[in-house]
Every structure is written in structure tokens, then in C-alpha cells.
């Protein structure tokens, strides 16, 4: 019994003053494992991409990016993102507005459906569009008769990308809009503002950071999407290759030059991703503040001291 007590004492001993805290040994083990994992699986590959890209000098890097087929891939990626992001901005705003501000039948179904693209494998998403619009597909014959090409062409790639990136804007906006409620809009109405004025002066400013955050994420995914786009693109070099598809194609051809070219394009994508990450972190911080401000604007039982300003509150 004596020894039992001693072991018991040591386990919750003086080195960890709080009962809920792990011992320093466990703490350091966990931190090291996490850190090693991040370095090995995230940081090293990323450095490797840039290393391989710049290995043969800046000149080769520029040349491989200036290749007409690669340039066309970059342009197509920008085009697809340029169409997808505004579309999902509008869809996302509409969906978030409907969910946050109205009560209607089937609302849980709509919320679940918004998440559907996250749950489905991108390849399956791409196949869905092939089944719908492909030559043997549901609308295939009708489209063929009118010489409208969707699959193995840009429209199909846009469709697939819109589908994949649909949740980002809506997901970001719903919590912000729900926290804000509808009273500010109602107040604007009683002061004579019309629907557009209310949206422009009241609704949009109150969600602007969340909206921008959603747009950034949406854009990052639109540029980086591989699976769904790959299925519907048809891989026509110089026509339906986006940057991720181009990377794969260059890499597969296995010559030393094209290998470097593959890494050059990959480094460009990686750079865009890093940029996104930085902007995202900044916006996350802003939306958090906005969310807290919205919460504070809700009813309060007591007075708030003027000292309770957001700068002292992060």
C-alpha cells in the first residue's frame, strides 16, 4: 500500500501543478511528433518543389514557363477561376442569405447539399458531368445535334470546378450572417432604404471579411483542382490543360527538361497556394474580430465599459 501511494503521488506530482495537464515528457513527445510530421510531409516536399524548379537556373525556369502549351494552361486556369469565383460568390451569398435569414421547409436539406461537394470524390463529381453531358450521356444526343461541346471542352471544366468549389463562400458566410441576424436590415428598411441599398450599405459591409475569405479559398481550390477537371477535360494539350493537368503531363513524359518544367509550373501553383495561405490567415483574424463584434452587438444585460474595445480583445 505504501508504494502505491508513492507512485500515485509522483504521477500527479509537483512538476505538473494543474491536474489536467500532461507531464512535460508527454508534452514534448507530442510536440516533437507533430513537428517532425510537418517537416517531413509538408515542408520538405514544398522546399523540394522549389529546389527542383530552380535547380537549372532562372533562365530555364522562365523558358519552361514560356512554353506555349504551358502558357495556354496558365491562361486556362485563370479563365476557369475567373468564371468560377464570381459565380460561386453569387451562389454563396444567395445560399447563405437564405439559410441565415429565412426559415423554410427543407432548410436542413439545403445545408447538407451545400456540403455535398466536400463529401464526394472529385473524380466522381467529374464523372457525373460526363454522364450528363458526354456523347453517350443523358443530354449527349441533344447537345451533339446542336454542336454544343461541354465535355472535353472549357464549359465542362468550368461546371466541374463550380461544383467542387461551391461550398467555400456559403460555408464562410453562414455563421457570420447568423450571428448578425436581420435586425440591422430591418432598421435600414424603416429608415427608408430599398432592398439594394440595404444590401449594399448594411449587409455587405457586415460580412465583407468573411466573404473575401470564402472567395480566396474558392479561388485557391479552383486553380488547384485536379480530379474532377481531369475527368472532363480530355487532356488536349494547348486546349484543355489547366496548370495541375499540365504538371502531370510534363512529369509523365519523363525527360529531364520536362521534369524541370513540371516543377516550374508546380512551384507557381505552390506559390499561389502560399499567398492564399497568408491572405487567409489575415482574413481569418479579421473575421474572428467581426464575429466577436457581432456577438457583442447582441443584447447585453449590463452596461459595457468603454474600455472594452476590440484592441484589448483578441
Amino acid at each position: 500500500m505504501q508504494t502505491d501511494t508513492q507512485i500515485f503521488r509522483r504521477a500527479r506530482g509537483p512538476k505538473s501543478p494543474r491536474g489536467t495537464e500532461e507531464s512535460p515528457f508527454v508534452k514534448w513527445i507530442l510536440i516533437s511528433v507533430a513537428l517532425a510530421f510537418v517537416v517531413l510531409f509538408l515542408l520538405l516536399p514544398l522546399i523540394n518543389v522549389f529546389w527542383q524548379a530552380f535547380d537549372r537556373g532562372l533562365k530555364v525556369y522562365y523558358e519552361s514557363l514560356a512554353d506555349p502549351d504551358t502558357l495556354s494552361a496558365i491562361k486556362l486556369t485563370l479563365l476557369i477561376a475567373g468564371i468560377t469565383v464570381p459565380l460561386n460568390l453569387v451562389f454563396g451569398l444567395a445560399a447563405a442569405w437564405a439559410i441565415a435569414k429565412f426559415n423554410f421547409k427543407g432548410k436542413p436539406v439545403l445545408i447538407t447539399l451545400i456540403d455535398l461537394p466536400f463529401a464526394i470524390s472529385p473524380v466522381v463529381a467529374g464523372l457525373m458531368f460526363v454522364v450528363l453531358f458526354g456523347r453517350q450521356g443523358f443530354f449527349g444526343e441533344w447537345l451533339d445535334a446542336r454542336e454544343i461541346r461541354i465535355i472535353f471542352a472549357v464549359p465542362g471544366m468550368v461546371l466541374a470546378t463550380v461544383f467542387i468549389t461551391f461550398p467555400f463562400v456559403a460555408r464562410e458566410l453562414i455563421p457570420v450572417m447568423q450571428a448578425t441576424g436581420t435586425e440591422q436590415e430591418q432598421a435600414a428598411l424603416t429608415l427608408g432604404a430599398g432592398g439594394w441599398q440595404t444590401f449594399w450599405y448594411v449587409t455587405l459591409p457586415s460580412v465583407r471579411w468573411g466573404l473575401l475569405y470564402g472567395v480566396i479559398l474558392c479561388n485557391a481550390r479552383a486553380m488547384g483542382e485536379f480530379g474532377a477537371v481531369s475527368v472532363v477535360s480530355g487532356h488536349i494539350t494547348g486546349q484543355t490543360d489547366t496548370m495541375p493537368l499540365r504538371v502531370e503531363k510534363l512529369y509523365q513524359s519523363a525527360s529531364a527538361a520536362s521534369m524541370t518544367a513540371a516543377f516550374s509550373v508546380a512551384s507557381l501553383l505552390a506559390f499561389l497556394a502560399l499567398l492564399t495561405l497568408i491572405i487567409k490567415t489575415f482574413l481569418e483574424w479579421r473575421t474572428q474580430r467581426e464575429y466577436e463584434a457581432a456577438q457583442r452587438a447582441q443584447p447585453e444585460p449590463t452596461l459595457i465599459a468603454p474600455s472594452l474595445q476590440p484592441t484589448s480583445h483578441r
Partner: peptide, 8 residues
């Protein structure tokens, strides 16, 4: 409004 609904 009860919670004032000021434009924040």
C-alpha cells in the same frame, strides 16, 4: 429595436 440594431 429592442437590441437597438445599430449599424455596427
Amino acid at each position: 429595436f429592442q437590441n437597438y440594431a445599430l449599424f455596427k
